[in-house]
């Protein structure tokens, strides 16, 4: 939007073209730009996307009204009975709903913290590696898990964490420990979620910091070396200040995700044994909505989540704009 304002503040091009002698073509252009020649094909180009968005993005938004109905699929939205806030009352009285909200916030908060810190530390350490090829090789390996789906990663985790024949428990028993039932024990399940999430995405998270680090002026490091600064002093006084703006940006923007505890991951790893620590809003509303076909209640749950998330995202974008001068346009 700001860009728009700058554009409109500049003189229109037609004024610049007001040269005394005009060729025939230039006259055509001049008069055309005065009339604000608009090519209708531009609107036609927008048509497919506008239709798709109208149906598949705004259609569901309108469909949110079923959160206030006792929705009957046979009768549809028009004939279903309106029940006001009953579905919301039902949810807040639902025995496990509070637990689900707590799990969601707790899991995603832990993930936010770990996902914030690990990429920063790894980037700073990577930056200390001077052999370019070696650095590239490490980067190639740590970016990889990001591109593999949670279905596949879950398959691998289920296999390696298996209590009887998984390699991790094999190692634990080899060193004299007792096998841990990672995916079925409430005391460790949250840990599995946080660690596997960090494992999958920490490498990808370093990309943005690595880009900021390469743009730090190398003269700063040389000047510091001449002043006999040691490595820690250089990291503390040059490297870290160089990435602080990105840290603020990443930190503030990630806050908008506080209610996204990671559906893809949890849904593919959890089971009824760990519902008390692992069940999150998205998995909860999936079971209510798709498994039990209670569309109205699941929609109400989704609506609570969307509303709170919208608030969080707005705050996070506002902070990112204030603190890091970030704009989406």
């Amino acid at each position: 939007m700001v860009q728009e304002q700058i554009e409109s503040a500049n003189p229109p091009r037609s004024k610049i073209w007001g040269a005394p002698l005009l060729s025939k073509g230039e006259i055509a252009i001049k008069s055309a730009s005065r009339k604000l020649r608009v090519d209708p094909t531009l609107y036609l180009m927008l048509l497919p996307a506008v239709i798709l968005v109208a149906v598949y993005s705004y259609g569901p938004l309108a469909g949110l009204v079923i959160a206030f109905q006792s929705y009957d699929i046979a009768m549809g939205i028009r004939a279903s009975e309106w029940v006001g806030l009953d579905n919301f009352r039902f949810l807040f009285k639902f025995p496990t709903f509070n637990q689900v909200i707590w799990n969601t916030v707790y899991i995603s908060f832990l993930k936010l913290v770990v996902r914030f810190i690990v990429p920063i530390v790894v980037s700073i350490l990577l930056n200390e590696i001077k052999r370019v090829k070696y650095k590239k090789a490490i980067q190639t390996m740590i970016y990889l898990p990001h591109f593999i789906s949670w279905v596949v990663i879950s398959g691998i985790l289920i296999s390696v964490l298996n209590p009887t024949d998984g390699i991790i428990n094999g190692l634990i028993t080899f060193f004299g420990g007792k096998p841990i039932y990672f995916l079925g024990d409430n005391s460790v399940f949250t840990g599995v979620l946080v660690v596997s999430d960090a494992w999958k995405d920490f490498g990808y998270g370093t990309i943005i910091y690595m880009a900021a680090l390469t743009s730090i002026d190398s003269n700063l490091y040389e000047a510091a070396s001449i002043d006999r600064a040691n490595r820690w002093q250089k990291i503390w006084n040059i490297t870290i200040p160089g990435i602080i703006p990105i840290m603020i940006l990443v930190g503030t923007l990630s806050m908008g995700n506080l209610l996204n505890a990671g559906f893809d991951q949890v849904f593919n790893l959890y089971n009824p044994l760990v519902y008390s620590t692992g069940d999150i809003l998205d998995t909860f509303l999936y079971r209510i909505g798709i498994d039990n076909a209670q569309y109205d209640i699941a929609t109400a749950a989704g609506m609570i989540k969307s509303a709170v998330s919208l608030g969080l995202v707005s705050i996070s974008y506002f902070l990112a704009y204030k603190l890091a001068d970030y704009r989406i346009f």
Binding site: L46, Y56, G59
Partner: peptide, 25 residues
């Protein structure tokens, strides 16, 4: 242009969620 852009930008921040989308599909 600006108004049309907003039609798309809004979809980044609000969505009908799982069930309404399922019903539309």
């Amino acid at each position: 242009r600006t108004a049309i852009s907003w039609i798309f930008v809004i979809t980044m921040f609000v969505s009908g969620g799982l069930i309404p989308t399922y019903l539309v599909v």
